[in-house]
Design a protein around this nucleic acid. Sequence first.
DNA 1: AATTTTCCCAACCGCGTCTCC
DNA 2: GGGAGACGCGGTTGGGAAAAT
Length: 379
Amino acid sequence: MGRPPCCEKTGVKKGPWTPEEDIILVSYIQEHGPGNWRNIPTNTGLLRCSKSCRLRWTNYLRPGIKRGNFTEHEEKMIIHLQALLGNRWAAIASYLPQRTDNDIKNYWNTHLKKKLNNNKKVEGRDDNHDHQEGTSASSSSSQSKISKGQWERRLQTDIHTAKQALCDALSLDTTPNNTNNNNPPPHDQEQQPSSVQTSTTYASSAENIAKLLQNWMKNSPKSTSSSSSKITQMSSLNNNLSIGAVSSSSPSEGTVNVTPGQGLDSLFSFNSSNNSDVSQSVSVDEGGNFSTPENHNNNNNNNAGIFQVESKPNLPDFKPENGNFQEESKQNMETQQVPLTMLEKWLLDDANAQAEQEDQLMGIGMGMEMTLAETTDLF
DNA sequence: AATTTTCCCAACCGCGTCTCC
DNA sequence: GGGAGACGCGGTTGGGAAAAT
């Protein structure tokens, strides 16, 4: 039997998210912070269930998400962490902060599983009866004896202890193996001019949305008014408010407005050329407009591939992880009308922080790799 | 060029855990 | 303490894109 579906309501929309919905969701979360998912559909007018909203945010819209090819480092980390943790994708994802559990899971299922199986076949060591979960077999067997909670806590303690030790040990060595050097893995990063980390901080929710919007506008070039009115309809609102600058007049009402009159393509402007190269920089002008300069890749500073704000107001740190997120955002909203820039600032800060964090984690990852090599003979 | 097959990933579903009353 | 609701996680799937025929 089991519990009934979380959203039995009729009229709950399913399937792919539209850019309009994304904008509404991001705007709402920007104002209120992530969480309270159950309120989001009612407060935003989105015809989605709370679960769907949460998933969309965590897997796609959340700032700092890195998309695209996995690096060798990431691959190895996933393999080793999977060996250690089993299919605990959320736990694994916590060591790869720019990747979502869903992404990692997909990557494991579509690439790494095959790869590992092939490796084993090549080695002629097919003595492990359970390929899929074989690498975590020892964990699983112990799991059956120890209660899950205990097992989990022990594992976590072990990992954190190891991590801490490795962190200390590696703190002086900031260039472990391939990390952050000029020799990116040949696998998929051949053209990357700089480090993997630098080149991969491109991804943020702003860019994801930008890409979506670009496609959206391609598909409906005259969408300015119609799409905007759709948004208005969807969110049951009609007041003026720029995307990202959430209504300052009634934040407590938890509503999100998008300016119908201004039009989205006046807020976002894009390089209409091939957007498959996602490592674009996006600049934001004083009006909060996005633009994607064509020659961004020629930047030879460390910001290549990172969002670049050419004009940014002084705004405080603005992160959902930060407990002050909501209060700060409200404060700022009350005092300023800066379309997009707050969201941008938040995204930018987050992206930079993520990049630094990953530098560190990669180091740890490589450290773990050495440690774990004793327990696994995958390679 | 057209059709079929394979691959990939965003999103859904169901269940377990957590939190609050 | 226990029940209900909310949240989070992992497995699975559907549809679009890419590759193969």
